[in-house]
Write a protein that binds this DNA or RNA. Structure first.
Lengths: 210, 210
DNA sequence: TAACCTACCAAACACTTGTTAGGGAAGGAG
DNA sequence: CTCCTTCCCTAACAAGTGTTTGGTAGGTTA
């Protein structure tokens, strides 16, 4: 294993992520990854010291980038509705960029979480939950979101609707990430039922808690 | 392997489903299943002829029951909105009853679909998609659902939001399946954004295509 | 030229995997 | 009692698993 020459590492990680996402982590053999990369299984161990560390590197790379964008949104001081819109849009952009990593995270994180090595998945999920819950509660208090819904249920609802998209989304499809985000947000916020009369909606909260 | 005495089979399938759901199918060893059942690995092969056939039986059992309920709903001649509501409610009831099987289906069906043995997963998914798409289009034509949304995107949206609930739902929690279905439907249909003024909504479509 | 580094191969290692074969204990049926 | 069925155990098998070790072709540096 070597630390320099990060380009080849990156290539191999990309193909590994692709195979992991398609077959599942446990069902993927290192020989299968090596095949996809055009080398032999043992050669992978020149670059990485275990199959698990490949997975680790894929997930941390994804989460680091995601949190970079999330933190920027959360620090921007937007209103609740705008924060949700920005978070969802960033999420779909992340699915567009790191589809394989997102699919792996979606599929394996629940089991990996129990291993100490992947404890950061738990931390990330809790930060994630706090950020969303706080935003939703802020929106309820400001009168932007409905108060008659279980906030935690709403959180899971919004979170899941966003991330499961990684299971069917294919980059280069007919809809851009931004367009998908727009339609998803429209469904989540306004609902799929038709309004009897089109209604004005102000983006500024009616009341504001300081 | 024996065909009679279906009670023990059923017990073993239930524990197998639980382990499959928790660890993933490929990551689950037959020894792990046997441990959970309190017997040894080889003894499982008195009841079943392979690990794969256990999975098969779990999934077909789940799908058969699900389609029994779905067909009843689809044959009831309900309006589009009521059909969606009934389908979603039945889905959450199914998650309540067969949580493990649903979780397995959710996690493994995409990979299993490619094997000929599990081709029925494809058929089921296509029936599923047709039923939902038809109902949504019927609703759009009747003026019950919004016409400005991509119907296929809406379908995936509704489908995913329902079934991913299997990944966090635990029977005996504080919300009943019906209550979760009610809140989910409220979010999907009306949206999480607050209406500026509460609006009357008639359950009967404004216009009706015969 | 000589020494060195990078990226790989070839071959094996210890271990786990799903599965099978043969046997045996318990209990009901005749 | 004997026979038979049910349900499980013991012990092993072959194939596949992640990983290691030693070697080597080709380029770069001195």
């Amino acid at each position: 294993m070597v630390s320099a020459a990060p380009e080849r590492r990156h290539e191999l990680l990309a193909t590994a992520a692709e195979v992991f996402a398609a077959q599942g982590y446990n069902a993927t053999t290192v020989r299968r990854i090596a095949d996809a990369a055009g080398i032999l299984a043992g050669s992978l161990y020149y670059h990485f010291d275990s199959k698990e560390s490949m997975l680790d590197e894929i997930l941390t790379g994804f989460l680091d980038e995601l949190w970079g964008r999330y933190d920027a949104v959360l620090a921007a001081g937007l209103g609740p509705r705008e924060t949700i819109e920005a978070l969802v849009t960033e999420s779909f952009r992340e699915i567009d960029r790191h589809r394989a990593a997102v699919a792996i995270y979606q599929k394996e994180s629940r089991q990996l979480r129990e291993q100490p090595r992947f404890g950061y998945l738990d931390d990330s999920q809790q930060r994630f939950e706090r950020a969303w819950l706080r935003t939703l509660e802020r929106g309820v208090a400001a009168g932007v979101f409905r108060a008659d819904l279980d906030v935690r249920l709403t959180y899971r609802f919004v979170r899941d609707t966003v991330w499961v998209a990684a299971s069917w989304y294919r980059p280069g499809g007919q809809h851009s990430p931004e367009e998908i985000a727009r339609q998803y947000l429209s469904m989540v916020l306004e609902g799929v039922a038709l309004r009897t009369r089109h209604e004005r909606r102000d983006t500024n909260p009616v009341t504001r808690t300081p």
